[in-house]
Amino acid sequence: MVTTTAPPSKPSAKVPAQRPKAGLSRKRREALAAYAFLAPDSLGLLIFVALPMVLAFGVAFFKVDGFGNYQYVGLDNYMLMAGDDQLWASLKVTATYVVTFVPIAFVVSFALAMLVRNHFRGIGWVRSAFFLPHVVSLVVVGLIWQFLLVDKRGALSKLLAPFGLSDVSFLGTPSLALGTYVVISVWFVMGYQMLVLLAGLKDVPKELEDAAEIDGASTLQRFRFVIWPLMRPTSFFVVVNSTIGAVTGLQAFDLVYVLTKGGPARATSTVVLYIYEQAFTFNNMGYAAALTTVVVAILVACTGLMFAFTKGGRFDED
């Protein structure tokens, strides 16, 4: 009987253990990339916003003249505000402007966003036309509108001549100047706010609107119960950003300075323009710094109240 023996098996090759890859993990690389993108903007905010705010808070405790002489006066600059009638008048003008401009700009911008949310022929040109005013310098915008509204010789006066309104001075009449300023401001910002709201509308699921339409909801009901709740975060951002811009933004100074310089009869003198006059016309740098800190404090308080009452724009019911 012949027996066969199996050939000796070859030793199995050992699989080398995988070593962890050298270098950073993907999550950490993404975090570093995000910080790298945020760093330039954060550095700019630190240098050009945060640091000047701290310095302004310190200067508010001094009396500073135009020659750089500092005299410590404690809280005297803040005490002067109580009897400053022009300050209270400028605060009243600013408050009137804010409560008029912010809702009108929001409603107009939301309507434009709803208008251009659907694609049709020439939609790109329409969106560009609405956004175009926002990319123009406010100084140029002010000069253009000043040319259009110049008394009796402006283009608008000639257009209104058949209606007997050619003699109306929109920028020279105290009762009309602030309203004219509001209209120009709305025209300037509506394109920017339209694009922000349009981006929010793009995130509203089309399926929800279609389901509501199938259930028999009207256009108004679909807007009220589907679109509006989902648009609350975006709307909150637009309102807060618009409020801050109306109080301290460029249109609160550049536009009014070019158009009326605070006139007529201080009818358009905003608080930012008044601070500018105190600092660079009357050389009251310390008082201007105190005014700035108070305005910032009021703005922070108003923003905090908006966050508290609207839950930061969240649409949940919790």
Rank of each mutant, 00 (worst) to 15 (best):
I144K: 05
H119A: 12
N118W: 06
P133V: 08
I144D: 01
V150C: 01
R121L: 11
D151Y: 07
H119T: 12
R127W: 10
W145S: 00
H134M: 10
V141W: 01
V139K: 02
V136A: 10
W145D: 01
H119P: 00
H134I: 01
F147C: 06
A129N: 10
R153D: 13
F131L: 06
W125D: 03
V140S: 13
F120K: 10
R121M: 11
S137L: 06
L132N: 04
I144T: 05
W125L: 15
V126G: 04
Q146V: 01
R153M: 12
H119K: 13
R127A: 07
G142P: 02
V135I: 12
R127C: 09
S137P: 02
F130A: 01
V141A: 07
A155D: 04
L138P: 05
L143S: 14
W145R: 06
R121T: 08
V141P: 01
L143Y: 14
H134F: 15
R153W: 13
V150P: 00
A155G: 12
I123R: 12
L143N: 15
R121K: 15
W125M: 12
V141F: 03
L149N: 02
G122D: 08
I144F: 07
R121I: 08
F130N: 02
L132K: 02
I123H: 11
P133I: 00
P133W: 02
V126C: 10
L132G: 06
L156C: 11
F131W: 03
V126T: 14
V139R: 10
G122W: 07
V141N: 03
G154L: 02
V140L: 14
F131N: 04
A129T: 15
D151P: 03
S137Y: 11
I144G: 00
F131G: 00
A129I: 05
F131R: 02
D151M: 05
S137F: 05
V126I: 14
I144W: 01
F130S: 00
V126S: 04
D151K: 10
G142M: 09
Q146L: 14
A155F: 14
V140M: 09
V135N: 08
R121Q: 11
V150I: 10
K152V: 11
L132F: 14
G122H: 07
W125E: 07
I144H: 00
I144P: 00
H119W: 14
W145T: 04
G122R: 10
R153F: 12
V140I: 15
W145I: 09
V150G: 02
L132Q: 07
F147M: 11
